[in-house]
Simulated scan of single mutants.
Amino acid sequence: MHEHDWLAARFETDRPRLRAVAYRMLGSSAEADDAVQETWLRASRSDAAAVENMSGWLTTIVARVSLNMLQSRTSRREELVDAPETGGSPRLDTPVDPEREALLAESVGTAMLLILDTLTPAERLAFVLHDMFAVPFEEIAPIVDRTPAAARQLASRARRRIQRQGVDPGATGAGPKAGPAQGENADTHQAGKADLIRAFLTASREGDFEALLAMLAPDIVLRSDRAVVRMGAATGRDAAAEIRGSDAVARAFAKLSWDPVPALVDGSAALAYAPDGVPRAVYRFGVADDLITGIDVRADLTGLDIVLC
């Protein structure tokens, strides 16, 4: 079989998945079809023979095309969610094997599409590719021009926004769901906070400024107690009592030579500087909307219940 014919046949096999990705990204059947067509044009002009993971390669192309289309939309918001005569989501033009891909009508509801349209293009892409199509963050990162850690934060931020609207990101049809019990809310918040703090620690150790910046609220405040300031002065390090703004805080922690460990401070997720297993300082984090809003650094540990994790 001629290479072009082989590619065309393979593209048709992946077309339902590509259209599903584009539809979830764009919320419009017409634009999804345009994105898939542009994907074919780009693929047909490339050296597909050198591609090892064809499905992944095509998914990356359609994601880039869809992201470009989202970013190029005019400031006047358009009504992009189709209302088909059947009352459900638009059907695919090509029949779909139920074992490969669920029909759009079974997996995307109008409520979800409306909420997705409130996300930034990068957030929407990271959430759609990871949560709906299980694309690894390592593959998403180059598409949104960010690190894998920053891409993870984009998806997590989008997920939280969707959940706050009463829509279950993992539910078929994306209908409203009952809110969890108060205890479940607290557990979920603590788990999410712990994950965010671990990601912050990893980014700081690796000097990943962009990843750090993606985790910080723009108006974040870093405060250090007098004991921390004195400790910094004694070791020749600059330890300001207060630092404001995400850029300044990210720079303070990027490439920082430190080795704290995850900890629980008074029962809340935190970090502790504990050489030889003895806590000398703790980093307590304020978190809201999946962003770090404040960091409180204390070397005066009087009265604190510290458990190293």
Rank of each mutant, 00 (worst) to 15 (best):
Ile162Met: 12
Ile140Cys: 10
Pro98Met: 06
Met112Asp: 08
Asp117Pro: 01
Arg100Thr: 08
Glu138Pro: 12
Gln163Phe: 02
Pro136Leu: 04
Asp168Gln: 08
Ser156Ile: 00
Glu106Met: 10
Leu119Asn: 02
Ala122Met: 01
Ser156Leu: 01
Leu104Cys: 06
Val135Asp: 09
Glu85Gln: 13
Glu99His: 11
Thr60Val: 03
Ala174Tyr: 00
Ser89Lys: 02
Val128Lys: 07
Leu119Gln: 02
Pro142Glu: 05
Ala111Asn: 13
Thr120Ala: 11
Gly87Ala: 14
Leu129Asp: 09
Met112Arg: 04
Phe127Arg: 00
Pro90Arg: 03
Leu125Gln: 10
Leu125Lys: 11
Asp82Cys: 14
Val81Trp: 06
Gln71Phe: 00
Ala171Trp: 07
Leu103Ser: 09
Thr110Ile: 10
Arg157Ala: 07
Ala111Thr: 06
Arg164Lys: 12
Asp168Met: 07
Ala174Met: 04
Leu103Thr: 04
Asp97Ile: 12
Phe127Ile: 04
Thr74Asn: 08
Leu92Thr: 06
Arg64Met: 12
Asn68Glu: 14
Ile140Trp: 03
Leu92Lys: 06
Val135Tyr: 04
Arg164Ala: 14
Arg161Met: 09
Ala149Arg: 01
Asp168Ile: 03
Ala155Gln: 06
Ile140Leu: 05
Glu138Phe: 02
Arg124Ile: 08
Ala122Gln: 13
Ala134Ser: 15
Asn68Ile: 04
Ala102Ile: 09
Gln71Lys: 14
Glu99Ala: 15
Arg152Lys: 11
Glu99Val: 09
Arg152Cys: 05
Asp145Arg: 02
Glu138Cys: 12
Val167Ala: 07
Leu70His: 03
Arg91Ser: 13
Leu129Arg: 08
Arg77Lys: 12
Ala102Glu: 09
Trp57Asn: 14
Leu67Phe: 10
Val135Ser: 12
Thr172Lys: 12
Gln165Leu: 02
Val167Asp: 04
Val65Phe: 05
Glu139Trp: 00
Thr94Asp: 11
Met69Trp: 02
Arg161Val: 04
Ser75Asp: 13
Arg157Glu: 07
Arg91Trp: 03
Gly56Gln: 09
Ile143Ala: 01
Pro136Tyr: 03
Leu129Ala: 11
Ala105Lys: 04
Pro148Asn: 05
Thr94His: 10
Ala63Val: 07
Arg146Gln: 14
Ala134Lys: 14
Ala174Trp: 00
Met132Pro: 03
Glu78Gly: 09
Glu79Thr: 11
Ala134Arg: 15
Thr86Tyr: 00
Gln165Lys: 11
Arg73Ser: 07
Gly166Leu: 09
Gln71Asn: 11
Ala155Thr: 00
Pro98Arg: 03
Val62Gln: 08
Leu154Ala: 06
Leu116Glu: 07
